[in-house]
Design a protein around this nucleic acid. Structure first.
Lengths: 208, 208
DNA sequence: ACATGTGAAGCGCTTCACAGCG
DNA sequence: CGCTGTGAAGCGCTTCACATGT
């Protein structure tokens, strides 16, 4: 069996993919140096990362762009469709609902949820906002694997528990709170105020 | 001089701070074990991380919550105010404009920018949306150190260049594109579709 | 007695440097 | 010759395990 792909490499594969997608349409080949320049890393890292997927380069030449895109996509599971539910349809949830549907065909938004009765029944980007008690049924029905939490902090843990209970295996948490999920459920955090605090640290320690 | 704080520790300090802030009001002390449980890491990591800031714990007892919050805040530069500008006021920019003002007093939003004339002059959360050609002047005037980019992908690099030119030293990029900035300007990326692709990788490699 | 603080060992990622191959 | 693929060295973070201090 193949060497497992390191976690840090998994995080860089989407970066490489993004770079390849932004290449001029005519460009058929790319070297590790060029790709490294676009991705903001060094070329040894690019070669090492891509070598975990297999030997897709040609010595003396570089990588075939189309083939590389395909292989990275396969590795990331992008040939499959993943169903996504979004819980908490405030400004951010609304933004993500439009965004997710727009930018990535492979991630189908199959349900929007909010516990505010005034929002329920209204429509965002072709989806009707449903009450939270419909969450379990919708997740099962569409076999949704990904849940996005954009609720206020106070509600996030309870929503995470319900998502896990309903069978979601990956959670993307935008709520400003640290949530815990059972074994087997992968949680990733996206937190504006934590990002700002990290920036603040480096501003604070760069002598100004 | 003190040992520099590792990058990974810098990223965890906001997590610890968030956990401390969510403690019940009566709780005056906390052990590395308790904090580790809340933050989702192990206790050795907590002790090592906090030891970079100094010896703020009491052997046999634990850490004083208030003192620890203060010290982490100082380390993160949260006793200072940082001025922030947001460029690209679509759904996401609007969400962040409200959010940033609401959750973090230390990050003052001093300017909102969009190149759509229909939006210019309208008001979001007490701030008037300005045309992009006002960006440089506003950054200088308020000595803004942080720029948040929420434009479409096509505009992001140009906006980043203008922000760097105007004197911003940290950029938080929400646009779905990899941007480059000159030496001395710190760029952090927050990218929904990359996060989803990482989740997709692990879903795809967990045998279902 | 108990939890912190910390050298030292362990581990994983990065980078080097060059063999391998078109 | 040029660029990939990769062992091996280097480096930084994690974890261990226990001395330290109250």
């Amino acid at each position: 069996m193949r060497t497992p792909v390191p976690k840090v490499t998994v995080q860089r594969l989407p970066v490489y993919l993004r770079c390849l997608e932004n290449l001029p349409p005519g460009q058929a080949g790319i070297s590790s140096d060029q790709l490294a320049g676009m991705a903001g890393v060094n070329s040894a890292k690019v070669r090492k990362d891509l070598s975990y997927l297999g030997s897709y380069g040609v010595r003396g030449v570089g990588y075939a762009v189309d083939h590389l895109r395909l292989q990275i996509g396969l590795e990331l599971g992008l040939e499959r469709d993943w169903s996504v539910v979004i819980v908490g349809i405030g400004n951010l949830g609304r933004a993500l609902a439009s965004y997710a549907g727009f930018i990535e065909r492979r991630f189908q938004v199959v349900g929007l949820f909010d516990n505010d009765p005034a929002k329920q029944g209204t429509d965002v980007d072709g989806q009707v906002i449903q009450p939270l008690d419909r969450l379990g049924a919708t997740v099962s029905e569409h076999r949704a694997s990904i849940g996005i939490i954009t609720t206020p902090a106070a509600a996030a843990q309870e929503v995470a528990d319900e998502l896990a209970e309903a069978g979601v295996r990956s959670i993307l948490n935008f709520a400003p709170v640290v949530i815990r999920a059972p074994e087997g459920v992968d949680v990733r955090r996206v937190d504006l105020s934590m990002e700002l605090q990290v920036l603040s640290f480096y501003l604070n320690h760069s002598g100004v």
